[in-house]
Every structure is written in structure tokens, then in C-alpha cells.
Design a protein around this nucleic acid. Structure first.
Lengths: 194, 194
DNA sequence: TTGTTTGTTGAACGAATGTTCATAAAAGCA
DNA sequence: TGCTTTTATGAACATTCGTTCAACAAACAA
């Protein structure tokens, strides 16, 4: 009945995500996106709406990937809660460190551009962090139940510390020259969990 | 002999700094700068070169202000080293919290735009962090000498933790909805210093 | 084959970008 | 009052921005 698409929209979106992740929303011109996605402007607009919509979907794709990554890590972990927390943190940092583009965390990057974003983007950024907080909070409460973390230590504060530290590390990992500081920070963070 | 300037270059630079601080380099168009500085394009270029140069000078101005702020705080402090560290951290965070524009830290913001900056800007960003690290490291070593922080605690790691936490807090403070998390983080950080 | 439907192309649009430049204006000195 | 020097103005520049659209292409149904 109709002509089939000559490209995979999922693949194209993935390419767009990587460009936005690396250069941000304001810093990414449309021609760079069409080039990376391998499609022409007109085709981009019929498939993805406009730049804001493409960015929004890129952010959703990134967050979905991270969510799955975290959930899987916890689900597949046969370790005790504390070890799971530590390995999860290491897993997140390792992912960022292995990225030769030093893109950091897409959500953190977007957060720093906050003034240029629409409300729905802002919302997704904020909800991502509260989601992350909830994940770590549950693990910490579990670790306290297991007696691995003192119950006299406030779980809320500890959660904030972990999430905050991860944000800081993701910032530092954007430049090769400050990678060593994030390394130090990571080991300090892991040792402080008890 | 010649016509005097009709505006104060220092004041104009200060205005430019605030715009860049709030919206970033890529996110700030030239007309917004001329408007904020109260001068016309031609005048801007004869006085400040081009956009990159204006940004560079804005960053230098910001860093100079922060440097003075920190040095003065330490110099005027009559407290013991540990109290000085804590009050310095509180001072830095308070400054950011009092900013109704939620601009965060200019240097951190610039860091997240790193791909769009010239080498000399990158250099200033990196050196700012190592400077900050040195400042805190010296204070920590002093506190260890005073017996306020255990000598068995690695000063390097502690320093990285503080700087990293401050970076994270500055990110979180850019959006009103995540301010509470940075509050929790701050108290957690201050309590962990011993 | 023809008709219908959907996908692809890339030239073109108006608006905005960073920057320049010819002209006018203001000050002190002759 | 000229004359010289520095500054101020804002129109104009080429380029790039995000976006649109008319023309063309490919698939299937009839």
C-alpha cells in the first residue's frame, strides 16, 4: 500500500541522543543532527516533529536505558544489600569512565542548561533524580535491616550524599584532566558507606 | 584630548558575566549581551574584542571574586581549622542559595559546556578546581595537626569529597525543586567531617 | 497499467546569529 | 574657532539557524 521507511527510526533516535548528550540542546545545530541521523531535514520533521520534540525523545530514551540498567543490576545481584549498593555505584561510574567522548550524564548535562528547556523536559530531569533517590533509599533501608549500615545513620541524608556525589563525579568526568579527582571521590564514597 | 567613555567597562563586564553565568556561552546571543551591558554592538567589539573574549574575561572576573571571597573568609576567621572549613563550605552554599536566579557556579556551568569552549577557557576551568582543592587540602592538613580530623583519614580523599560535593550541590541548586536535596547533602557533608 | 498512499529529497524561507564599518558626536588642544 | 583624537551609533553584512514545502520515488491494490 505504501512505501516503506528507508531507515530505522530507533537507530536514528539513538544517534540524535548521542549528539545531544555530547553537545547539549542549544549547542547542537539541526544540520549536525540530520548528518548524524543520516536523514534529510524534511524527513526528520515528518518523523520526529521539531528539535524540541527530538530532544525530549532523546532524553526519554537515555533515561529509559539508565533505568533498565539500574533495575537489572539490582535484580541480577546475588549479593547482600550493601555490596549491591557499592557495585551499583561502581557500575554507574564505570559506564561514564569508559565513554571516550566524556559525555557524562545526559540528565545532569540537561540540568545545567535548564533555562533553555521546556517544562516537560524540566519535569523529566527532576523526576529522574527523585527516582534515583528512591532506588538508593530502598537499598539503604534494606542494608540497615541487614545490619550493614547503622540504623542511627539517617537514610535520607545518606541517599542525598550518594546521588549528589554521583552528580559531581559525572561533572568531573566530562574533562579528562579531572578524572583523577572523581576516582578519589569514588573510593572515598564507597569507604564511607557503613 | 579625546572623548571620555560614556559607560564603566567594569560595570558592563559585570553585567555580561551575569548573563553568561545564567545562560551559558552558547545560550547567550549577542543582542542579549549588548542589552544587558547597555552598549551598542560596535562599542562592545571595540571595548571587549569578540564574544569569546568577553566570555573569557567574564569567567576571570567570576573566579577572581570567588577567590577573594574564599581567601578573605579564611583570613578573617578566628576559629579553629575545622570550624573554618565548615563555615567556608556553608558560606559557599549560602551564596548560591541566596541567588534568586539559581545560576549555580559559573565554573561548573562552563564545565558542562566544555565542548564549545576554547583551550584557554578549559584551562581556567581546570585550574580553578585544582586551586579549590589546594585550599581545602591545606585546611584539612591543619585540622589534622590540631587533632580535629583523624590523621588516619586520607586528606586527599577528603578534599576530593568536599570539592565534589560542592559541585553536586551547585548543580542541584540550579533548580528550585531539588534545593532540598542539596540541603540534606550539606548537613550530611558537614557531619562527616571528623 | 493506473491509482492511491506513504516516504524521500533538497532547495528555499524568514529570522537570528556574530561581526563590521561608515558616520556622527564629544572632549581637549591649537 | 578649527583640528585631532577617541568614542558612540546602528544600519548592514555574510552566515547560519530551525523549519517548510513542492516535486519526486517506491510500494501495493485495483
Amino acid at each position: 500500500m505504501a512505501r516503506p521507511k528507508s531507515f530505522d527510526p530507533d537507530v536514528a533516535l539513538h544517534q540524535a541522543m548521542n549528539v545531544f548528550w555530547r553537545n547539549g540542546y542549544v549547542g547542537t545545530p539541526m544540520p549536525q543532527l540530520t548528518k548524524a541521523m543520516g536523514i534529510h531535514p524534511g524527513n526528520l520533521y515528518t518523523n520526529f516533529g521539531n528539535k524540541e520534540n527530538l530532544f525530549f525523545r532523546s532524553l526519554l530514551l537515555y533515561q529509559k536505558g539508565q533505568r533498565i540498567r539500574m533495575v537489572n543490576h539490582i535484580k541480577n545481584s546475588t549479593d547482600d544489600p550493601l555490596t549491591c549498593i557499592k557495585s551499583l555505584i561502581q557500575n554507574i561510574v564505570l559506564q561514564a569512565k569508559e565513554d571516550s567522548d566524556c559525555k557524562g550524564c545526559f540528565t545532569v548535562n540537561t540540568f545545567l542548561e535548564i533555562n533553555h528547556h521546556t517544562d516537560r523536559v524540566k519535569e523529566k530531569v527532576v523526576s529522574y533524580f527523585s527516582e534515583m533517590k528512591t532506588t538508593f533509599l530502598n537499598l539503604i533501608l534494606q542494608a540497615q535491616k541487614y545490619g550493614q549500615i547503622s540504623v542511627y545513620r539517617e537514610a535520607d541524608g545518606l541517599t542525598a550524599m550518594i546521588v549528589n556525589a554521583l552528580v559531581g563525579i559525572h561533572v568531573m568526568l566530562r574533562h579528562p584532566q579531572t578524572v583523577d579527582q572523581s576516582e578519589l571521590m569514588l573510593s572515598e564514597l564507597l569507604e564511607n558507606l557503613r
